[in-house]
């Protein structure tokens, strides 16, 4: 499989750490529900998981862990939040004696990622226009 341990994602840490929430872009109204969903996608590891799953049909827990270099507990917590929001689906099975969790992006998750991307693009356009 691709994206093994060597394929760790390089981060843009300083910009992310210093920045707060995304500002609401003028003209792009969002309902309360959407705001909540945006915050769910906004978190760095969850955004990374959804982006990675957008280009791969499925990724195992181990592959995601190697990709983002996070602990089991941390990744589990993020994955659970995405599952609860029905943005990703998880299939659990056994590979021999070892448990195996396979994650897939759902249609709702893809739509949420697209919405988020639209929002980020709108921020860039609005800022550069002004």
């Amino acid at each position: 499989m691709a994206a093994k341990t060597s394929a760790r994602v390089r981060t843009e840490a300083p910009a992310f750490r210093r920045a707060g929430k995304l500002a609401v872009v003028s003209g792009a109204s969002r309902a309360d529900g959407d705001s909540r969903l945006d915050r769910l996608v906004y978190e760095r590891v969850r955004l990374g998981m959804m982006s990675a799953l957008a280009v791969r049909d499925e990724l195992t827990f181990s592959e995601l862990k190697a990709l983002f270099d996070v602990s089991d507990g941390n990744l589990s917590a993020h994955a659970r939040k995405l599952e609860e929001a029905r943005y990703v689906s998880c299939t659990k099975s056994f590979d021999g004696r070892r448990p195996k969790s396979v994650y897939r992006l759902t249609a709702a998750g893809r739509a949420a990622l697209n919405r988020y991307l639209d929002h980020v693009e709108a921020v860039i356009k609005a800022t550069r226009r002004g």
Binding site: E12, S51, A52, L59
Partner: peptide, 25 residues
Amino acid sequence: HTVALDSHAAATLRYIRACMEAAGT
């Protein structure tokens, strides 16, 4: 210590792209 909104958004897009590239085949 402030970050321009557009540079933050651009960094987000770069991060998304990096994730997709790292996971992609």
